[in-house]
Design a protein around this nucleic acid. Sequence first.
DNA 1: AATGAATGAGTATTCATTCAT
DNA 2: GATGAATGAATACTCATTCAT
Lengths: 229, 229, 229, 229
Amino acid sequence: MSTPVSARSRDEGLEVRSKDSPRDGRASRAEKIREQRRRELLDVALKVFAQRGYHQARIADIIDAAGVARGTFYLYFESKNAIFHALLDDLLARVRTSVVGVSMAGNAPPVNVQIRQSVERVLAAFVASPDLTRVVLREAVGLDAEVDKKLFDFYARLHRWLADALANGARLGLLRVSNGDLAAWAVLGTIKQMVQLLVDGPADSGRKPTITEAAEAILDYSLLGLAPR
Amino acid sequence: MSTPVSARSRDEGLEVRSKDSPRDGRASRAEKIREQRRRELLDVALKVFAQRGYHQARIADIIDAAGVARGTFYLYFESKNAIFHALLDDLLARVRTSVVGVSMAGNAPPVNVQIRQSVERVLAAFVASPDLTRVVLREAVGLDAEVDKKLFDFYARLHRWLADALANGARLGLLRVSNGDLAAWAVLGTIKQMVQLLVDGPADSGRKPTITEAAEAILDYSLLGLAPR
Amino acid sequence: MSTPVSARSRDEGLEVRSKDSPRDGRASRAEKIREQRRRELLDVALKVFAQRGYHQARIADIIDAAGVARGTFYLYFESKNAIFHALLDDLLARVRTSVVGVSMAGNAPPVNVQIRQSVERVLAAFVASPDLTRVVLREAVGLDAEVDKKLFDFYARLHRWLADALANGARLGLLRVSNGDLAAWAVLGTIKQMVQLLVDGPADSGRKPTITEAAEAILDYSLLGLAPR
Amino acid sequence: MSTPVSARSRDEGLEVRSKDSPRDGRASRAEKIREQRRRELLDVALKVFAQRGYHQARIADIIDAAGVARGTFYLYFESKNAIFHALLDDLLARVRTSVVGVSMAGNAPPVNVQIRQSVERVLAAFVASPDLTRVVLREAVGLDAEVDKKLFDFYARLHRWLADALANGARLGLLRVSNGDLAAWAVLGTIKQMVQLLVDGPADSGRKPTITEAAEAILDYSLLGLAPR
DNA sequence: AATGAATGAGTATTCATTCAT
DNA sequence: GATGAATGAATACTCATTCAT
């Protein structure tokens, strides 16, 4: 009555509450069921996208796997594209949430520990859903303009975060002053590569690193460099 | 490849010289023309892929822009997929060629200079065709299994090269001994990010670096790290 | 029809009074509410059909505009087609009612006056609901076999009425004897055109005639013809 | 090369002749074949539309009946709608051509004869393709805005022609001066009804009139009226 | 070699109708 | 009676590829 709405209305903005539908138990349960279905569809779609790729994936694959009727899919998502966007948003939001600044509070852990935790948190946010990460990394680039913009903004945000962290570190004398922007891109490149390693495994048949190892490698490489000290 | 042949035969291996076509002037000219057309189609296809993306690109776009008939396209390339592969192969081959080892010969430049030149050569190989690099970077991932394998092998090769270089450096006492494999991936991630920066520009509206700056950043970051020395 | 029943039962013929629903106030009120809703739906559907055309009109348009749930619609009408039929029946019934014969009673107005009134009544019956007339005229033809038959019968009836009137007129010496059937069709064509003019306005940007003018034109043209007398 | 073009290009305007394709026999024959196919498709589509109605007709019906592949249909017509438009245009053009003014030349037939011929020509233009006329009459109204406009303009044109003819007749003293516009609409209504009679037959099981009878009835009714003279 | 007309497999989306609550 | 989530049949259109000329 109030919440379950066609996928179409997702952009309609204000939801008007109908006069005789208080948020009673029935509505609330319906809402819960709706959310479950939505999740189920997202999960199934992720599997399908992971297996066949976005372009090869057919709506039929998704609804067959989910065991719902064709129309039901469109009750929850506007289009094939929309469900991909939902998946993408899920991942990006999760990663964004995992990105936090360094606290200078007295009771905060030492800076270097905070940094390590921060990096681990970001990696973990990706690795928590390896399939999703793989799909987003493989299928999202160049899919459509909107997806491009989301990724662009997402990376720009990460870059900003890194550049700020570098600038702060330099101010505190913890880091060498370098071309901060380029260095931030370099760090980002390292992180992206480690994420790929974590979800895909290495190209050669080597061992897939753990999150801790990957974070360690990032910090070791970024901070100390490869030259002997 | 001498006599103009259908695209079908590209995998036929040995080219048998037809008995009544001596490598005379006529045949040679035909061959030249054929090669020109092929290039023309590749160039045009690159533009189309760059503009519309692989999936949005239609054969009609390519032949219209090239001014040839539909059937002619298939005389030169087996399929839409095949012309993409040709483009991909072009880029990968060019980059592969640019990757050379460090020479220990007495008359060779100092090692650090050689390394810098090597990195610059690789970046230059990508940047020489920014459109092609962009297309391959954006469209190739997840396109089909064969493309995936090519990229996988390509990156594995680069990784191997870097890992070997790192191992050599360590042996010579020029580099810290670290987890060589992971470190090589880290360097590769940095390089990939710099290539993207070079062909796409930075996410924020900053300045696009030059090849020299990018190479400088890679080496500075990789060798010295961000921590003060 | 007393107790509110599903749309399904509209053809069930005899309505059996359920044993425990005496025609008490409650039932009667329910009936009234039901009738109101039905009208509301008809009115809304008319607007929707007028605006978007039958084929473009979606049930969603109707229930949204009416503010009822999907299922409710089907409580009142069997199908989208059925509500159109109801609308069509409304108009045809109203027009049929407006068609009356000429009275020969002594106290009746003169025949020519009666005829004029008759024509005006028919025109008025259409013009009373210009939207409905427009919808029926535009959408009904070729919609389905049943609609076709209704229109066919309706026009056949009008034609019969006109043919009889012509025959009577001829018998009374009031009219020239002509090919009565064809002449009746001719009159009918004139009337239909005037109805269209009355609800749609003329093709050129001329003035829309009044009912009186239209009736006048029909009679003048039909009776006197265009040749000088 | 020059003429056979995708349906898409029908509005591209100027056809540029490719440098090495003189209008030789091959091109000319291809053009002829193309025209034949187009006609075949039009004929088949007409049958399908006549049998099932526009909305019930599926592209599959047309291509099955025509024995061509799906894609071939779209080589000749942009869409289902487009082929209907082509059919509509055919009929309207034919009828428009049949409408000619009255000649005042000395050697011209008497005016009344010319008028009768004119009316007969119009009727004949419709009746020459009863199926097409039926389809256009039944399916075109309210189909889409463009169709509406075409019909609107078509009837406006016919009305103008009639109104002019009436005005001329009045000036020459051949006709009563009346409300010319309304009278022209009345005549048009009569003609439309007769056309319907000619292609559909009368509602009652009477005899379908011949063109001559229909034209006779129109003139008799329009000129002399039904009142005794 | 070149052409371009013909082919037909492939699929996302709509919306009238149903029925469990 | 009322609701609205679920259903699934139905179909126009695209475009890579083929092949007769």
